[in-house]
C-alpha cells in the first residue's frame, strides 16, 4: 500500500467531507433565523373580508403573524393551536394575524368558514410581505414583541407547546 498517496488523499478528502457533512446535516432553509432580533417589517394590507389593516395599528402590543395557505396540510394541522392561542392570549394583549401565502381570498373564505377563525387573515398579493419576512414556505409563524422586534420565528406547523414557549418567553421580556 502506498502510504504517501493514501495520506495525500485523506488530507484532501477530510476537509471536504467535514464541509459536506456540515452542509448536508442541516436544512439551511428550515434553520434560518435571520429575522430574529430584527425590527418586524411593517405592512399595510387588506383582509380577505376587504378591511385594511396595518401592522403599525398594533404598535405597542405583541403580535403573532402566521403565514399560511389553504393548500398547506401542516397549516390545517396547526390551525386549532392558533385558534386556541388567540383566545387564550387575547386577555394579555396579544394579537394574532394570518397572512395568506400564494392563495386567493375566495378559497381562504371557504376554508375559514369550514375550519373556523378567531383572527383576521390578510391578503399578500405577490408575496411581497412574505419576502420582507424571509418566508421560505408555509406555515411559518413570527412572534413580534411589544417593541416591534421579531422575538422568534417558528418554521413548520406550530405546536401548542412551541407557541406557549414563544409567547411566555416574549411576554416575559415585556417590562
Amino acid at each position: 500500500m502506498n502510504w504517501k498517496i493514501l495520506g495525500g488523499g485523506a488530507a484532501i478528502m477530510l476537509p471536504l467531507v467535514a464541509v459536506l457533512a456540515g452542509g448536508f446535516g442541516k436544512d439551511p432553509r428550515g434553520s434560518s433565523t435571520a429575522m430574529e432580533g430584527q425590527k418586524a417589517p411593517g405592512f399595510s394590507l387588506i383582509s380577505i373580508d376587504g378591511d385594511p389593516l396595518a401592522l403599525g395599528e398594533l404598535a405597542g402590543s405583541p403580535v403573532v403573524i402566521n403565514f399560511w395557505a389553504t393548500w398547506c396540510q401542516p397549516c390545517l394541522a396547526e390551525h386549532p393551536v392558533l385558534l386556541e392561542g388567540s383566545k387564550r392570549y387575547r386577555s394579555r394583549g396579544v394579537s394574532f394575524l394570518g397572512l395568506l401565502y400564494d392563495d386567493d381570498a375566495d378559497t381562504a373564505r371557504r376554508w375559514i368558514a369550514k375550519h373556523g377563525a378567531a383572527f383576521p387573515t390578510l391578503l399578500d398579493p405577490g408575496n411581497h410581505t412574505a419576502i420582507d419576512y424571509g418566508v421560505v414556505g408555509v406555515p411559518e409563524t413570527f412572534f413580534i414583541d411589544a417593541g416591534g422586534q421579531i422575538f422568534r420565528k417558528h418554521t413548520g406547523p406550530l405546536t401548542f407547546e412551541a407557541m406557549v414557549d414563544a409567547l411566555e418567553g416574549m411576554l416575559g421580556d415585556v417590562p
Partner: peptide, 23 residues
C-alpha cells in the same frame, strides 16, 4: 438580512466557506 447567507448562490469567501474556495 431576511433569508440569511444561504440566499447567496455564491457562498461568500469567509469563515468556513473559505474551504470551498481554497480547497
Amino acid at each position: 438580512d431576511t433569508y440569511g447567507e444561504w440566499v447567496r448562490l455564491d457562498p461568500k469567501a469567509e469563515g468556513a466557506n473559505l474551504v470551498l474556495w481554497l480547497l
